[in-house]
Design a protein around this nucleic acid. Sequence first.
DNA 1: TATATTACCGGAGGAAGTCTCCGTTTGTCA
DNA 2: TGACAAACGGAGACTTCCTCCGGTAATATA
Lengths: 200, 200
Amino acid sequence: MKIEKTSVNAEKLPSSRKPRSDGQRNRELIIQIAKEAFTRHGAGASLDDIAKQAGVGAGTLYRHFPSREALLGAVYQAEVEKLAEAANQFSRELSPEEAIRAWLHLFIEYLATKKIIAAALNGLVGSSPVFEESMLKVRGAATTIYDRAIQSGDVRPDINPVDHILAIVGVTFFGPSEDWKASATRLVDILLRGSRPSSS
Amino acid sequence: MKIEKTSVNAEKLPSSRKPRSDGQRNRELIIQIAKEAFTRHGAGASLDDIAKQAGVGAGTLYRHFPSREALLGAVYQAEVEKLAEAANQFSRELSPEEAIRAWLHLFIEYLATKKIIAAALNGLVGSSPVFEESMLKVRGAATTIYDRAIQSGDVRPDINPVDHILAIVGVTFFGPSEDWKASATRLVDILLRGSRPSSS
DNA sequence: TATATTACCGGAGGAAGTCTCCGTTTGTCA
DNA sequence: TGACAAACGGAGACTTCCTCCGGTAATATA
């Protein structure tokens, strides 16, 4: 709960220079390794190990992410970002229905990390703004990709993306534990089949 | 991932003696303290601290629960047990609708701990049997308490407890982060009002 | 390109937490 | 009540967290 001098402004203002490329590279690498470590070992994964696997010293990791929570938050935000970008990319590259399928599969991956990270950040620092904002992003991405499928006639107009999302969330948190991912993946097929206009 | 000799049988068979009462008392006390610690500080709460707060030595804690995961699992199971017992107790002591309300409130508490514990136990030891079984217990408790309300005419017969449960799970995991508990509590009122036979 | 500047790098090490070991205490049964 | 199996507690070896700071390398300026 300590207040950092430099954190008053979200952006670091005194830097007139371009950020160093290796720093950026390392930052992203650490996030990627950390995501794997957290999903594999839980939110308590060894940070020294993550640094080692990323090929950097502990100091480097802690300069980029002053606390475990900061790293968890960064991983979570990166995941949300990926989800939002993917919505656009899939819209361009795939058929409307396949785009939804691919995006929902990605959403399942996202839930896996959210499950861990949200729990770890529970009673801690006021994480609400971050979560609030990312919710909007996820919802926006879903709307983008579903609207297109409705326009093209692959999905009935009365389908709400939130219906699909909540169904998946439900399975994730209340289905049989072992392979909830498999259940969720199967559910995606059912949802898509059941959301087509020409009902059997 | 180590295999314990004594874990082959769920019950300890060679003990002809009654289990010592202080052992049982300490075990339950530790679970209770641990639940508070985990919900307050997350799944990484200090085990030595928990032992200290429970007034026992670290060795005692570790004898009862050889690993952090064992303790997390015990807390989770106790929570499920409480949920199942409460369904019966509320059925006896409260009106059908109030019983549901009270039980759903307890369910929200249960979700708070499940959120933390399920995430921590994610990729770890084959937790499936425990979770599988507790799912059945929760579902059974819900059925018990909803059936009674349907019989008494406080809830429409077409209402499925799973509908209510999934709605709450959805808010818990996909609603605004800050005070999801408050949202969930409000949702309970809405659900109950909306599930009465005499619709406005 | 040479140089100054500044941000980044890495790992040693104190602090905090995990978990085991074993001598002591206590509840149960004869 | 005496004997003993079982539970107790906490010292301490080990692991992990996180900080600190001397060294290094990328960028801007001349």
